[in-house]
Design a protein around this nucleic acid. Structure first.
Length: 482
RNA sequence: CGGGGUGUAGCGCAGUUCGGUAGCGCACGUGCUUUGGGAGCAUGGGGUCGCAGGUUCAAAUCCUGUCACCCCGACCA
């Protein structure tokens, strides 16, 4: 294979409406060492580089949870069948995709256990024990764990049988507080996506059809992938007193009345890593947002066998590390410089620093930023601050590019023709009557589902439903979804 | 769960039509020369052909079953 061919291995995978986008995705996650397929149905192994991203996501998000007053807990993985069955809608929603434990050792169990697909029921069981009085409220807990859902079809990060996530579960004295919490967490997710993942998202309320099993209201943030499809990247639910009534979670109010608590839950998962890949990736591979890049700066000593080069490179790595930059010195002498360039670009490291004899003579380092592929030089003196600024700029650029992309691909439609055309390569904003029948029909005719209803409902494209023509009350985003 | 496809060396594949000693490229080991955009030459190692049965003197190849994975749908974070 010639040089050109090798370099073009990934070229042209991401283009508008390109059917190879899926293929590009699977290629890139395998070639960049993020994951490998496990010898377990629908499950993946997350390798060190991929897990590094998750650790940074956890760190950043956990800090936000702590700042807003949440505490971490850990609950068991197994749920007794009877507990799962307590909330009718919930069990109906999850029953088709739970895995059962029916035997322990050689003994067949009296009561089957499910491996948690989510932990609402366990939290409810414990909250029922823990809450006595209004003084105990609110309780705001979060859990980092994995859950298992017997999915029919799977894809690394986007949908796997077992996946890592965080699930927050809170209970409150009043409906207002619960709603406030639900929206607060949605906003924390949105801000996190923007500031940490460089992901622009659409936030809003889900339709009844798409809401969580057992929720009164579900809110989501939806990101747009480069093939125009939507990826639900986080959800926040308000349960009202649904679960409290099913599980008997009651407290004595200040007035001495026995009241049900109002409950919320919210979650995000490793799916966000899939969102990063499919939003920012390009024909050379990954482009990782600096704040979740396990390696932010890679230093490549050039002609490293020459006197002093490696020493200078090591010193540089050391000083960047001290400055709090996640840096890797690639001093492998078994690969050529060109090979390393390609490999680190493929892996999406935001900044590459080349340090060779010429640079050292001039007191500079050659810098390549992964987002724009622009090459320049920076003086070695004070390079730490310049790099930090550069990383921030890369983050901003990635966000801007993604934001421009989604704006360009967000359409409005007033009829089915426009809707059908729009969802071929993006999101469509349309007026909707609120009826399930129209959602179903739209799904059938266009393949698109309702995503969410923005909080700002102004700018309705028409006053009648895009589907049935009856007077419409809701501004809704429609898109094909992962 | 429906429709389609693929399982042969770490990776990507050829060989299956028509049964007859297991192949290629990359990667990997060793040596020398290289090193600022995927280096070159020489030499070497590595595979119970997804698994289980069956047919046959003989099976990667034919038959039956089974498992895994990929793509497109339906279902879902």
């Amino acid at each position: 294979m010639g040089k050109k061919d090798k370099q073009q291995e990934f070229v042209a995978h991401i283009t508008p409406r390109n059917e190879d986008f899926s293929q590009w995705y699977t290629d890139v996650i395998l070639k960049t060492d993020l994951v490998d397929y496990a010898p377990v149905r629908g499950c993946m192994v997350i390798k060190p580089y991929g897990y590094g991203i998750w650790e940074l996501i956890q760190q950043e998000m956990d800090r936000r949870f702590k700042e807003s007053g949440h505490k971490n807990v850990y609950f068991p993985m197994l749920i007794p069948e009877s507990l799962l069955r307590k909330e009718a809608e919930h069990v109906e929603g999850f029953a088709p995709e739970v895995a059962w434990v029916t035997q322990g050792g050689s003994e067949v169990l009296q009561e089957k256990l499910v491996i948690r697909p989510t932990s609402e029921t366990l939290f409810c069981a414990m909250y029922a024990k823990w809450v006595q009085s209004w003084r105990d409220l609110p309780m705001r807990y979060n859990q980092w764990c994995s859950v298992l859902r017997w999915e029919k079809s799977t894809r690394p990060f986007l949908r796997t049988s077992e996946f890592l996530w965080q699930e927050g579960h809170t209970i409150h004295a009043t409906a207002e507080e619960a709603q406030e919490e639900t929206l607060l967490m949605l906003e924390i997710y949105r801000e996190f996506a923007e500031k940490v993942l460089a992901l622009p998202t659409y936030v809003g309320q889900k339709s009844d059809k798409e809401k969580f099993a057992g929720a009164r209201a579900t809110y989501s943030m939806e990101a747009m992938m480069q093939d125009g499809k939507a990826l639900q990247a986080g959800t926040s639910h308000n349960f009202g007193t649904n679960f409290a009534e099913a599980f008997g979670i009651q407290y004595l109010s200040k007035e001495g009345q026995l009241e049900y608590v109002h409950e919320t839950s919210w979650g995000t998962s490793t799916r966000m890593i899939g969102a990063i890949i499919m939003t920012h990736g390009d024909e050379r591979g990954l482009r990782l947002p600096p704040r979740v890049a396990p390696i932010q700066v890679v230093i490549l000593p050039i002609a490293q066998h020459k006197e002093g080069v490696l020493d200078r490179a090591r010193a540089l790595a050391e000083s960047l590390k001290k400055a709090g930059i996640r840096v890797e010195l690639d001093d492998r002498d078994t690969y050529s410089a060109g090979w390393k360039f390609n490999e680190w670009e493929l892996k999406g490291v935001p900044v590459r620093l080349e340090l060779g004899p010429r640079d050292i003579d001039n007191g500079v380092a050659t810098v390549m930023r992964r987002d724009t592929l622009e090459k320049s030089t920076l003086p070695l003196a004070g390079i730490e601050d310049a790099l930090k600024a550069l990383l921030d700029d890369i983050h901003a650029t990635l966000y801007r590019q993604a934001d421009e992309f989604r704006r360009a691909r967000t359409y409005t439609a007033t009829d089915m023709e426009g809707l059908t055309r729009g969802v071929q390569d993006g999101f469509v904003e349309a007026a909707w009557c609120g009826e399930r029948a129209c959602e179903d029909r739209i799904k059938e005719l266009t393949g698109a589902t309702s995503r969410n209803m923005p909080f700002d409902q102004s700018g309705m494209p028409s006053d009648v439903c895009v589907c049935c023509g009856k007077p419409a009350g809701k501004l809704m985003y429609f898109a094909k979804a992962y």
